[in-house]
């Protein structure tokens, strides 16, 4: 807590002291006061003494109120502020979930959807969208910040993916083309789901769950799609549950996926199990958030509440005292 205009306090205190000294030195004798002899006729009465004590009490209250009022107003005029430095975390992120719903991926998809269903409750300003693809891509819902709707959609998706839903309607439209897991087309569909760049810069990321097991002939290959994503400033975070390769002998598909993801500025994660999804997704979100942190901002926040509240109380006290004294 610091005072912006601390000299106001000094000047005010000096002025108050001067006024007090002046009043002390020049007690206001009203010129038209009537001289009275034998005032003890009145002043010796016990009831007068009592009334006088009562009067003095309320005058004291009035005096204290005036002092408190002046002091608290001076305090408020000196503008007490507290200074704080914080790094604002920007919430203007766009996240597209891009899930390969071929048979080998369903478990991973369910885990990802589950994690986001939880995370979305803490979102403020982020937009999220869901696109699923197999041989063709379907946008389940576009980028939106209607979290209630998102939560419901994610719940539906989760139940469909866990196989507990009555039908496979959820996956309708993902088998329209020949083949299966047309990865490049799927990624491109997801990248196209982002709106054109507006005035405000929003970070764009794709959570891309696939094992890159391509069967069929896609229109765009994965590297081509990754190039489009990089051009559109979309970072691709790839999650691969079926990376059975090792450091020495990596799988070809996994390597291609990793290259594609890193070429967009994103990362590649090989998943050991469905449980790892949770930590990885959080890691991805933290990475995105870290990239978005703005410059440290020094902010001053005023705290006029206490002095002004005191002043109000003192005003009430003064009012009551004046009312009582005048009675």
């Amino acid at each position: 807590m610091a005072l912006t205009y601390w000299w106001v306090l000094l000047a005010g205190a000096a002025a108050m002291a001067a006024v007090l000294v002046w009043i002390w030195r020049h007690p206001c004798r009203s010129a038209d006061s009537t001289p009275i002899a034998h005032a003890d006729r009145l002043t010796a009465l016990p009831s007068y003494q009592k009334a006088l004590a009562h009067q003095k009490r309320w005058l004291a209250v009035a005096l204290v109120s005036v002092l408190v009022l002046a002091a608290s107003l001076l305090m408020a005029a000196a503008r007490p502020v507290s200074e704080s430095t914080n790094i604002p975390e920007q919430k203007n992120r766009d996240i597209m979930l891009c899930l390969d719903v071929s048979g080998s991926m369903i478990d991973t998809d369910e885990a990802i959807v589950g994690v986001f269903a939880e995370m979305v409750t803490a979102f403020k300003g982020e937009r999220i969208g869901l696109t699923i693809f197999d041989s063709s891509a379907v946008q389940v819902f576009p980028l939106t910040d209607d979290y209630e709707f998102v939560a419901e959609q994610l719940k539906n998706a989760k139940s469909a993916m866990s196989g507990s839903a009555d039908s496979f309607d959820f996956f309708d439209g993902t088998y329209e083309a020949n083949g299966s897991s047309l990865i490049g087309d799927g990624l491109l569909s997801c990248v196209n789901g982002f709106p054109g760049e507006g005035e405000t810069q929003r970070s764009r990321s794709v959570i891309f769950a696939t094992d890159n097991m391509l069967s069929g002939k896609p229109i765009f290959t994965l590297p081509e799609a990754a190039a489009v994503a990089a051009k559109a400033k979309v970072r691709v975070y790839a999650l691969n549950p079926n990376d059975f390769g090792s450091q020495q002998n990596p799988m070809e598909e996994a390597l291609e996926l990793k290259t594609a993801a890193t070429s967009t500025g994103g990362l590649y994660y090989a998943l050991d199990s469905g449980e790892a999804v949770n930590s990885i997704v959080h890691k991805v979100q933290a990475t995105e958030a870290a990239k978005l942190q703005g410059a440290p901002v020094k902010s001053l926040s005023d705290h006029p509440g206490l002095p002004l509240g005191l002043a109000l109380l003192a005003l009430f006290g003064l009012g009551a005292a004046v009312w009582k004294v005048r009675q």
């Binding site: 038209d32 001289p35 002043t43 007068y48």
Partner: peptide
């Protein structure tokens, strides 16, 4: 009674005739 402020000539101080 006297209206207005009074001054006791014995002690030369103010008598609160308002109270009276």
């Amino acid at each position: 009674a006297l209206r207005g402020p009074g001054q006791d000539v014995a002690a030369m101080d103010t008598v609160l005739t308002l109270l009276a």
